[in-house]
Simulated assay, not measured.
Amino acid sequence: MNKVGPGTSPSQSWHKDLARLIDHIRMRNFPEVLNDCLQSLVSFDTLLIATYKHAFKPIVVLSNHPQHLEPALKRYVNQVYLLDPLFNAIQGGLSGGVYRLREIAPDSFDSSEYCRSCYNEFGLVDEIILVIGLENDVSFTLSLGRKSSLGSITRAERNTLNQIFPVIAALVHQFWLAQSADYVHNEESRDAMEYALATFGSGVLTRREQEITGLILKGHSSKAIAELLDISAGTVKVHRKNIHARLNTGTQSELFSMFLGHLSSLAAS
């Protein structure tokens, strides 16, 4: 494949790649071809193509993560995606487009226990996500991860992705029309995850405390929680103190571990 310098405007080589994509548009290996073509335009270390729908578990369409990260990816898909900024942004109605993870993440995401103990396992310093809305409330996402050797995405590369996004979205729509039957979201997984969120701390925390606990786990600061719930920051701090007292926890790490234990107990029941 002819390479284009990362961040340059799509040119003749992109047109050749586009022709190749069109040739594979209804084939099962379209995601692999798409990966190859994107690599000729922008630089990235990892790629994860996944679909999201309501509270269903995400479905991995393609991943090029190294084998040693498979346990972390499996953990994400089966459990901790509930705390993921992308998942929650989609739940909140995120529209199609090109985003950096930090643009859609809660204000204290970097200091959240989910980020420290799960997301950071992937070793990324930047993540660029293409979000494409499909039929039946499905969101098709391409997450391009960059490690420290590449650094953050450049303005030129971001511009390139914005330029080609409408074409990529149209191609993905056609691929999905042909292959969506191979990627069916499981109704039981949606019910289980909704139940998990609704029942964490049940019988110990009040409904408001459960709501605030979920926002804490996702990486929202007290100030952000106050704005989301239209209450004072002081009230949030009181709730946080009460949550730790009722659950007998003292840190975010302990709260996160308890939440994972809750998920595991539900899966085993």
Rank of each mutant, 00 (worst) to 15 (best):
M1G: 14
N2W: 14
N2C: 11
P10R: 06
S13G: 05
S13D: 07
H15Y: 15
R20Q: 14
R20F: 11
I25A: 03
M27A: 11
F30E: 01
E32G: 11
V33L: 09
L34R: 01
L38M: 05
S40A: 11
L41F: 09
D45W: 01
I49Q: 09
A50E: 05
T51Y: 02
H54N: 12
V61N: 01
S63C: 04
S63V: 02
N64K: 07
H65C: 09
H68M: 09
A72Q: 03
K74I: 07
V77L: 09
N78I: 04
Q79D: 15
V80P: 03
L82V: 10
F87S: 10
N88V: 03
Q91Y: 07
G93T: 08
E103F: 08
A105N: 05
P106D: 04
P106N: 07
S108M: 11
F122T: 01
G123V: 02
D126S: 02
D126V: 00
I128D: 06
I132F: 04
G133I: 10
D137T: 12
D137H: 09
D137Y: 09
V138G: 05
F140T: 01
T141G: 03
T141Y: 06
T141H: 07
L144F: 08
G145W: 13
K147C: 03
K147V: 05
S152P: 08
S152T: 12
R155L: 12
N159Q: 15
N159H: 10
Q163E: 10
P166R: 15
A169F: 01
A169W: 00
F175I: 08
F175N: 01
W176T: 00
L177D: 12
A178E: 01
S180F: 13
A181G: 13
Y183M: 03
H185N: 02
E187N: 12
S189A: 08
L197Q: 10
F200Y: 14
G203I: 01
L205V: 03
T206H: 09
R208H: 08
E209R: 13
E211I: 12
I212Y: 07
E227F: 10
E227S: 12
A233R: 13
G234D: 06
I243F: 09
H244V: 02
G250Y: 06
S253H: 13
E254H: 03
S257L: 11
G261V: 03
G261N: 08
A267C: 10
S269T: 15
